[in-house]
């Protein structure tokens, strides 16, 4: 394609092609400290293109493409180039990945032991991961944790952290000097701004960690905690995995092993300070 950029996030290499220069420039800038794909071979190809030739110039709209796609993707404005690239990269993993069991979870690590946080959109996965990153944790990712079925370790996927609505202000206040992408208003997920993970998260992106505790956070409730039995954790994680079914028996084995070995807790929190304390306590106790 006319414009292209190659990068690697954790173990996953991408080739991003675009009909326009702007999205590639924006992605290349935000991901400037990330390495190139391993051995020069991209795991996935992503395409940002104009569905009709004239859409390149007239009311330009980005259609998402790649090795794997969902039918009926809605085109987005050219100004949302970074979001388009991020969504297209996520889609490749969600639909195409077969080496790792994909968990829709954020994760942070300390001393080689990882906390996995999973929950519905709005539960605070990204916000908590970003705030923990500012408190000395190594950020592994705010969207996907990659569980290796053979070793039981999780691999990092520290893409740009996707902050939405109120969490944009919360995190900006916590790390005013961090690098942010442009503020995108009126997206399907509301106001959205990307945060570049810190230097440590990028430098250690290739290092896996041992899962230590599994958390199911819920925002907007009085502080409360309860242990989650392995059976419930299993069912919730099958729903939080995009490729559990596709991995067949390997997926089942990987997930049963995870929930049997790793304690799980549901944490309700009214504010982020409470949640951070709950996460740190859960990790220390595990």
């Amino acid at each position: 394609m006319r414009h292209a950029h190659h990068l690697r996030i954790g173990p996953v290499g991408f080739r991003i092609g675009s009909d326009w220069r702007a999205p590639i420039d924006a992605v290349a800038d935000l991901y400037r400290d990330y390495p190139a794909p391993a051995d020069g071979v991209a795991d996935y190809t992503v395409r940002l293109f104009a569905a009709r030739p004239w859409r390149r110039w007239m009311r330009p709209a980005i259609t998402l493409g790649g090795d794997y796609l969902l039918p009926d993707a809605v085109p987005m404005p050219l100004a949302w180039g970074v979001l388009a690239a991020e969504m297209a990269m996520n889609l490749q993993l969600a639909l195409g990945e077969r080496r790792y069991l994909l968990l829709h979870a954020s994760s942070v690590e300390r001393d080689g032991r990882a906390v996995l946080m999973t929950g519905v959109s709005g539960a605070g996965k990204s916000t908590l991961a970003a705030l923990l990153m500012t408190r000395g944790w190594r950020l592994m990712g705010d969207e996907f944790a990659l569980l290796d079925p053979e070793s039981g370790a999780v691999h990092a996927f520290p893409r740009l952290i996707s902050l939405k609505n109120e969490s944009v202000g919360v995190v900006q206040a916590a790390v005013p000097d961090a690098r942010f992408g442009p503020l995108l208003t009126g997206t399907p997920k509301g106001d959205l701004r990307h945060l570049v993970p810190d230097a440590r998260a990028i430098a250690m992106a290739a290092a896996p960690a041992t899962p230590a505790v599994l958390l199911f956070p819920s925002f907007g409730y009085a502080a409360a905690e309860r242990p989650v039995p392995p059976s419930e954790a299993f069912v919730r994680l099958t729903q939080a995995s995009t490729n559990y079914t596709a991995l067949g028996e390997r997926g089942f084995d990987a997930l049963t092993r995870l929930v049997q070995r790793v304690p799980a807790r549901a944490i309700d929190y009214p504010d982020t300070a409470t949640a951070v304390a709950q996460v740190e306590a859960a990790w220390a106790a595990a």
């Binding site: 290499g13 794909p37 391993a38 051995d39 020069g40 071979v41 795991d43 077969r98 080496r99 596709a246 991995l247 067949g248 028996e249 390997r250």
Partner: peptide
């Protein structure tokens, strides 16, 4: 072939098997 290509193709083989 480059190791990463071998890894991707091995995953494709396994996926076809599943």
């Amino acid at each position: 072939m480059p190791p990463r290509a071998a890894e991707l193709l091995e995953a494709a083989r396994r996926s076809a098997d599943t």
